[in-house]
């Protein structure tokens, strides 16, 4: 009996000690991990800012709005404007094509398909999301660009003969439009996987509420599912947009890589250049400190662009519930 109670005392004191130590370790770990994200943001912001000081002191804020790009020593002049436009345009095309298709896939898997079809399909979507972008890039370069040229660009060109500025450009196949489509193909698996996951969160009671009012499947999605997970869906789209804006190698392979004023797109079938693709193209051969600084500054602009897009998206989601006009006049 005595030895038993003695043992018991010893064990309990050990237990208390261990618990405290474990807790402290745990707190240290999670706080450290959370701190890591802050540290990374600070480090990236710092090195990008320091790296781009040279170019901004040489060109001023005009760097953002100029379109010259001349790396020849003595005549150096750099401007990021065409590549900002190229980035925004190619990503906009990617989103315009990618988001509706992603949503449709997610709706089909989570709301319409029976589990025996939906489960394998969602597995395949996730598989697609894991394909490296270089694979999409190679396929686009060797196969897809000809489809785009022959099936979309040529017919449009033949019909309109350049009378509509939007489509006016000799069909070539390596241009902003192709880049946009391939980007869409790349981001669809990601956006649709997240959308599906998000839509799964909607409780069935919400769907039944809509069904019981006589809603069709589509009306139920619109009425009960979308509003419930709106912020999650926007978040999914933003994640896709982040990938599209920052995607480098795939874009470099298909966008045409124009430099200077000619890179300002006159139509969606123009050859162009994005911020990321220009950095990838020239970073190895940066001829001077100023040239290098200009490339880093492109990175800085890209960073600001992504952050800006994210902030705007979050503000959009946060908008308060709309009040119906009927209720106000009560």
């Amino acid at each position: 009996m005595t030895s038993n109670s003695k043992n018991h005392r010893n064990i309990s004191s050990l237990f208390v000690m261990r618990k405290k130590r474990g807790d402290r370790l745990f707190y240290g770990l999670v706080i450290g991990a959370a701190g890591y994200t802050l540290l990374m943001v600070a480090l990236v912001a710092f090195s990008v800012t320091r790296g781009s000081i040279d170019i901004f002191s040489a060109e001023g804020i005009g760097f953002v709005f100029q379109s010259n790009w001349n790396a020849v020593e003595g005549r150096e002049s750099f401007g990021a404007f065409p590549y900002i436009i190229g980035t925004l345009l190619s990503s906009a095309i990617a989103m315009a094509i990618g988001v509706p298709i992603s949503l449709a896939i997610a709706i089909f898997i989570s709301e319409i398909a029976p589990p025996r079809i939906g489960t394998p399909l969602s597995f395949i979507t996730e598989l697609l999301a894991a394909v490296p972008s270089i694979i999409y890039g190679l396929w686009a370069l060797f196969v897809f660009r000809f489809w785009v040229r022959d099936l979309i660009e040529k017919p449009l060109y033949d019909v309109f003969h350049g009378s509509i500025p939007f489509f006016a450009k000799t069909p070539f196949g390596l241009d902003i439009f192709t880049a946009g489509i391939v980007l869409a193909i790349m981001i669809i698996p990601i956006i649709s996987s997240i959308c599906r996951e998000v839509m799964r969160v909607v409780p069935d009671s919400q769907r039944e509420a809509a069904y019981s009012l006589g809603a069709t499947r589509w009306e139920t999605v619109r009425m009960a599912v979308f509003p419930y997970v709106k912020s999650g869906l926007v978040g999914a789209a933003m994640l896709g947009l982040g990938r599209a804006v920052g995607e480098t190698i795939l874009v470099t392979m298909v966008i045409g890589n124009v430099i200077g004023p000619g890179a300002i797109p006159t139509s969606i079938f123009s050859q162009g250049q994005t911020l990321a693709s220009l950095v990838a193209n020239e970073f190895n051969e940066a001829s001077s400190d100023l040239h290098l600084s200009a490339l880093i500054a492109l990175g800085a602009i890209l960073l600001v662009l992504t952050m800006g897009i994210n902030i705007v998206a979050r503000l959009l989601v946060k908008k308060k519930i709309k009040v119906s006009s009927g209720a106000k006049s009560q």
């Binding site: 509420a209 019981s212 009012l213």
Partner: peptide, 28 residues
Amino acid sequence: VVIRRRIGMVFQKPNPFPTMSIFDNVAA
């Protein structure tokens, strides 16, 4: 769908549409 418009249903757990106002819930 037409049948469910004519036969109302109330569920175990209250399930108002969370993003809608009181008015909009009834008007849904």
